[in-house]
Amino acid sequence: MRLLYFAWLKQKTGVTEEEVELPGEVTKVSELLDWLAGRGEGYAEALANRKTIRVAVNQEYARADDPVKDGDEVALFPPVTGG
């Protein structure tokens, strides 16, 4: 899976982009966030408040229960502020 981080999620994790192999038990967005939060201090801090995080799976907005799988492009970012 290709993971992308934007805005302060990029700063807190210290990662712009990475390739990860998903553990078998991770099958949906909420489980992915739980798993990522356990990967280190920066991740734990970045993912502490889930209300402030938006997720896109293959460039489409996704909800906590939506499925994820290896090969997906998943982006994590704060609520958008363009315009």
Partner: peptide, 14 residues
């Protein structure tokens, strides 16, 4: 267009 862009398009301001 501008109202939807502000809440849907993935841009972030620093």
């Amino acid at each position: 267009l501008i109202d939807w862009l502000k809440t849907q398009a993935p841009f972030w301001k620093l």
